[in-house]
Amino acid sequence: LFFWQWADGLRGLVIGTVVFFTAFNLLEASLPSLVSKVSPAGGKGTAMGVYSTSQFLGAALGGILGGWLFQHGGLNMVFLGCAVLCAIWLVVALRMNEPPYVTSLRMPLTPEAVREAGLTERLMAVPGVTDAVVVEEESAIYIKLDTKILDRTTLERLVNPASSACEA
């Protein structure tokens, strides 16, 4: 809307560009983190792949839609079309819940721990653990936890009790 109203002068163009790219860089850095936080422990790679694909499809479709709007309504129509898309996104974003403040960890597992049947369920019962998944092929467990409730040392003892006892 700013560009629609004041982009015909150099001052408006410079101010609008600085504000736009400041917000753009903030989103460009924070959205991947948001996707990572809300994705399941074992599905972060898939979620990031879907995010990247959506990002590039959006850039392609945005160029196509912007060109179509410019062809049929001029530059002001492009700015108004972007404003409509921003308003739609604002409505969606206002309804989103704040993501949990969790940390993702990948911890190696001993062969015994990999074969342990109830490891994931035992960890999910621990306060502070929000998600856990064992990946046998990697001999590892992916865990999401709230570090304010549970520390890594306690978690290591729960994941590999035999190796923690040997170290102590």
Rank of each mutant, 00 (worst) to 15 (best):
residue 106 R to E: 08
residue 14 V to L: 13
residue 107 M to R: 10
residue 144 K to C: 00
residue 151 D to C: 12
residue 155 L to Y: 02
residue 75 L to A: 11
residue 146 D to T: 01
residue 84 V to I: 14
residue 71 Q to T: 10
residue 70 F to Q: 09
residue 70 F to A: 15
residue 30 S to E: 12
residue 131 D to K: 15
residue 13 L to E: 14
residue 34 L to Y: 14
residue 74 G to T: 02
residue 12 G to D: 12
residue 35 V to M: 14
residue 13 L to K: 14
residue 56 F to H: 04
residue 71 Q to D: 10
residue 30 S to R: 07
residue 163 S to K: 15
residue 71 Q to C: 00
residue 101 Y to S: 11
residue 139 S to K: 01
residue 131 D to E: 15
residue 145 L to T: 12
residue 125 A to V: 03
residue 103 T to Q: 00
residue 99 P to L: 12
residue 144 K to D: 09
residue 8 D to V: 15
residue 126 V to D: 01
residue 82 C to L: 14
residue 120 T to L: 11
residue 153 T to Y: 02
residue 147 T to F: 00
residue 35 V to G: 07
residue 138 E to N: 03
residue 150 L to Y: 12
residue 138 E to D: 10
residue 96 M to C: 01
residue 61 L to H: 04
residue 168 A to N: 06
residue 150 L to E: 03
residue 145 L to P: 06
residue 70 F to D: 09
residue 21 F to I: 08
residue 25 N to A: 05
residue 63 G to S: 12
residue 38 V to T: 15
residue 44 K to Y: 07
residue 150 L to D: 00
residue 108 P to N: 08
residue 92 V to I: 04
residue 94 L to S: 08
residue 11 R to N: 13
residue 100 P to Q: 09
residue 162 A to M: 12
residue 29 A to S: 10
residue 108 P to Q: 12
residue 95 R to D: 11
residue 88 I to F: 04
residue 18 V to S: 12
residue 87 A to Y: 02
residue 69 L to G: 10
residue 60 A to T: 15
residue 16 G to V: 13
residue 152 R to D: 05
residue 69 L to K: 09
residue 72 H to V: 10
residue 55 Q to P: 07
residue 37 K to G: 12
residue 129 V to L: 05
residue 19 V to S: 11
residue 128 G to R: 00
residue 98 E to F: 06
residue 83 A to H: 01
residue 163 S to R: 11
residue 2 F to M: 08
residue 40 P to C: 09
residue 62 G to H: 02
residue 30 S to W: 13
residue 105 L to G: 04
residue 37 K to C: 07
residue 6 W to R: 13
residue 114 V to I: 07
residue 159 V to M: 00
residue 103 T to E: 02
residue 156 E to Y: 05
residue 40 P to M: 11
residue 10 L to S: 10
residue 63 G to Q: 12
residue 45 G to F: 09
residue 161 P to Q: 02
residue 96 M to A: 15
residue 152 R to Y: 14
residue 114 V to G: 02
residue 108 P to F: 07
residue 109 L to F: 00
residue 63 G to A: 04
residue 149 I to N: 04
residue 31 L to Y: 02
residue 4 W to V: 00
residue 67 G to D: 01
residue 36 S to E: 12
residue 19 V to I: 13
residue 119 L to Y: 07
residue 47 A to W: 03
residue 38 V to W: 15
residue 45 G to L: 00
residue 29 A to Q: 01
residue 92 V to F: 02
residue 79 F to L: 03
residue 154 T to C: 08
residue 165 A to D: 04
residue 45 G to P: 03
residue 16 G to S: 15
residue 109 L to I: 06
residue 127 P to I: 05
residue 99 P to G: 11
residue 42 G to N: 00
residue 3 F to M: 13
